[in-house]
Design a protein around this nucleic acid. Structure first.
Lengths: 341, 341
DNA sequence: TTGAAAGCGCTAACAA
DNA sequence: TTGTTAGCGCTTTCAA
């Protein structure tokens, strides 16, 4: 029960601590802490001395220690499949923009579509005691699901609208996107429809769009659309055989469920001498390039940035203890008719 | 000096702690801690009991407490202008991929090109005691510069090759990019050159390319290139007047310093009836769309992903205490000739 | 408005 | 290989 001898090496980091500021300012550490977190509670004289002392000694508060003591990290984590795809990078930007003014930082994890990586990230983020967590998708495989259920922190899901989110969700209906495009085609008088999607099973967004598209076609009394699901992401060399099939089958209008797809397709039609939209109408998902090609592509714009921004605002309300009016937020989407249909 | 009365409310978070695991496994907390960090140092029997106990009580280690105690956060921060632009989102992905296998997480901050935001982010990240910091750019305005100098943690700069980096840098020479394109044009016999850049002063990358391009043209005995610096990011409606100027001035080859620029320009030449490359040769920066247009665009590919990946590896070596052979890493770039020149 | 004491949950240092 | 002890640098609680 003796005090350890003074010879014990200090574990200190050698950095300037709040105590150094307190000493320089002639106040207690507590007053410095308050000055930093709630300046209004500190007298003007003390405030002035503390402000000067902070600059003098070059104090940068240790937020790790603060987080441990307060049990609040002021960090929000977001998990996306990849940042290489702008559609997933944008929500990170939106989240960041929503949170930065409130002093929150963004921890980002990319899964590369691997469920294992996803689970490991969720585990690590919960371990970091993040104040909030944004995850991509509406449904999760087992290890992830359980972790999210017991996260102990607000969770917001992105892009989809599950009936029973873990906590909150910000997304849109991919089925509605597909249906909207099918309805448009029908309205324009196209009778023979097709859709080009994505075979990747993990891409539930594309699957939802295909489903909604076909369902709407059926509802409108059209023949079942031709469904094409290329294995790989669309490359130029894939486009020609795909176009051949569309032409052979007498397809009048095709919906491409990803943004690059429609541009690739349209640029290739020219080489084959197809006239757009008279020989083939093309609808897609909006991107910068949808308006750069000729004709510009009729497209549905998905509000990727807004998904992140609104998720951030939702988290902020929760973290501020305010009630969240609606735990499922439908951002909707924008239909933009252009020359290709 | 009395113990405070037992009535003092506990500040505990109610979460499962390492102590709960230790009790369930019948070992000390230290042994549990070691099991998590250095399993080889723990006996097989104890290991088995601890592993079972962790699952039983559902323990998720509090990494905040661990960080405070060990003075290592296993977090690396990266600051980029925006994630909306893939050229800046890619390095984040690369950094993340390099670090994740080692258990590091990525804290990301976006500046939207605001120096103030940048400084605030650097300050906050240092406060978080990140183990490493990656920042975009070669030179920094005052508050940021000083913070980086005294960061107290490894710093790697991205995209540029300053003579005196704060610590380390991974980048490429934008002047070399410009020079390479000018040399190519000269080699192909184009005599009257132009370059379209970006007026934004903060875009030092574009500026470097323009400078290198003009310098090389001069060195090769060509007339001074026409330098066009549109104020805004390039839109379709900006392209036509720009093209008019090129034609009026008799320009034979133009270098576009950003990736979207060249595509926009090329897609517009068709409307004006210009033949590429005979009426006008176009060189640019590579992107997915450079090969989708007709003719495909001769372009320089900048290794955005690699910049982040190599920065991550550099940081890892430093954090592992290994020597870093070279503090300035030139990633180089790839020149790809296609039909547009 | 200010300060003293205790402790957040973990790991480093030391000892056995 | 395991355990004991004392912090890491803050913030909370309580008291003045």
């Amino acid at each position: 029960m003796e005090r350890s001898p003074i010879t014990r090496r200090s574990r200190g980091t050698g950095r300037v601590r709040i105590e150094d500021v307190a000493r320089a300012a002639g106040v207690s550490t507590q007053t410095v802490s308050r000055f930093l977190r709630a300046p209004a509670q500190v007298g003007p004289e003390a405030s002035a001395r503390i402000a000067a002392a902070i600059l003098e000694v070059g104090y940068v508060p240790n937020l790790v220690a603060g987080s441990l003591a307060s049990n609040r990290s002021r960090i929000v984590a977001i998990i996306v499949p990849t940042l290489a795809n702008p559609v997933h990078a944008q929500p990170v930007q939106g989240l960041s923009d929503a949170l930065r003014p409130q002093g929150f930082q963004v921890l980002v994890g990319t899964t590369d579509f691997q469920a294992e990586t996803e689970a490991a990230l969720i585990h690590a983020f919960i371990g970091r005691r993040v104040d909030g967590l944004a995850v991509t998708g509406g449904s999760f495989a087992e290890p992830s699901r359980q972790l999210l259920e017991a996260a102990g922190t607000p969770v917001v899901q992105l892009w989809e609208l599950p009936e029973q989110p873990f906590d909150m969700t910000v997304g849109l209906s991919n089925a509605a996107i597909g249906a909207r495009m099918a309805a448009h085609f029908a309205e324009r008088g196209y009778r023979s429809l097709a859709v080009i999607g994505h075979a990747e099973a993990s891409d539930t967004r594309s699957a939802g769009r295909v489903t909604g598209y076909c369902a709407e076609a059926k509802r409108l009394g059209l023949a079942d659309p031709l469904v094409l699901l290329p294995q790989r992401p669309m490359l130029i060399r894939d486009a020609t055989p795909l176009l051949d099939r569309l032409v052979i089958q007498g397809v009048e209008a095709v919906f491409c469920t990803s943004s690059q797809l429609s541009v690739v397709l349209l640029l290739n039609t020219r080489r084959l001498g197809l006239a757009i939209p008279s020989d083939l109408a093309i609808g897609g998902i909006d991107s910068d390039f949808a308006t750069l090609v000729d004709p510009a592509i009729t497209a549905i714009r998905v509000p990727a940035y807004d998904v992140g921004l609104k998720a951030g605002r939702l988290l902020l309300r929760r973290l501020a203890g305010e009630p969240v009016p609606e735990r499922r937020i439908d951002t909707g989407f924008t239909f933009i008719q252009r020359g290709s249909t």
